[in-house]
């Protein structure tokens, strides 16, 4: 902490108050409300909401599908984005900037516009689908399916992966690589013994964020497959605003479970990745 005088401290707190207020109003309050609602059923405190979800193959299925798609696309993104980020590091600064800006726009260009773009290109009669069928590479490709979701998710996940991994690569300076090279290490050995261990915490962190990003995705999935996809976010949306199945308390229960699913790996990672100092 920087040493500041009493006056400075007061000013610092005064400046922080609006920010803390926003956090309180838009993060702590809603979360508390969601938590509270989840333990009420028809106005009385109960755990029936949890019992209903944990006892329902349908709702558990939503968790399973969301979890699988998120884990899968997070892994795909990591595996694809990692080498891209490494190659990008070796490019001239201008190319780096262009690709990073493009990735940045891409990761935020989700929801209806993204779904629409994919439908035009890869829908049942999308141009790329037809090309692939023409070329005999696929028989048919249905983007309105779980496989289709994985495909579309992977797109923005990879771009986010690049954005997350690229800065972390700064930890591997060229002279570390050259030092290893002069000592006889091959490129592969360098990555195995030095590069990956250095990056491991960042990669784990990136995987986690990618997973959370996919778990929380709603608009893109909703636009592409509507309520047909059994995803946690889509079920929550339906229970909150749907006209047939509306049950806000149940929605809040699912939301609470979603938060728990996201919190567990984050806490676990903090715990596992705490630097092990072998310094006696």
């Amino acid at each position: 902490m920087i040493e500041i005088g009493r006056r400075g401290r007061i000013i610092a707190w005064a400046c922080a108050i609006p920010f803390l207020a926003v956090i309180f109003l838009f993060e702590v309050m809603p979360l508390a409300a969601v938590l509270t609602n989840s333990v009420f059923k028809e106005g009385v405190p109960s755990v029936l909401n949890y019992a209903e979800i944990l006892g329902s193959r349908f709702y558990l299925g939503a968790f399973r599908v969301s979890f699988s798609i998120s884990l899968l696309t997070a892994l795909i993104a990591l595996v694809v984005a990692f080498p891209i980020a490494i190659i990008l590091r070796r490019m001239p600064g201008r190319v780096q900037d262009i690709i990073l800006v493009f990735s940045n726009i891409g990761t935020n260009f989700t929801g209806y516009p993204l779904a629409f773009a994919f439908v035009i290109l890869m829908g049942v009669s999308g141009s790329i689908t037809l090309l692939l069928i023409e070329a005999g590479l696929v028989k048919d490709f249905n983007i309105y399916s779980t496989a289709g979701l994985v495909f579309v998710y992977s797109y923005f996940q990879i771009l986010l992966g690049i954005l997350l991994i690229f800065p972390a690569l700064g930890a591997i300076t060229p002279d570390i690589e050259e030092a290893a090279k002069l000592m006889g290490a091959s490129r592969w050995l360098f990555w195995r013994r030095i590069g990956l261990p250095i990056l491991a915490p960042s990669l784990a962190g990136a995987l986690l964020l990618l997973f959370a990003n996919a778990m929380g995705t709603y608009a893109t999935a909703e636009a592409l497959v509507g309520s047909g996809a059994n995803l946690v976010t889509i079920r929550i949306g339906e229970l909150t605003a749907g006209d047939v199945f509306s049950d806000p308390n149940l929605a809040d229960t699912m939301a609470t479970l979603l938060v728990i699913i996201l919190i567990i790996p984050i806490v676990a990672a903090q715990f596992l990745l705490k630097p092990k100092d072998s310094n006696a």
Partner: peptide, 20 residues
């Protein structure tokens, strides 16, 4: 490079941070 038998010391150390 690795066949030349050359050792190098860099300005910013270039130690392997993950190793003791």
């Amino acid at each position: 490079a690795k066949q030349r038998g050359i050792g190098m010391v860099f300005q910013h150390y270039a130690l392997f941070p993950n190793m003791s």
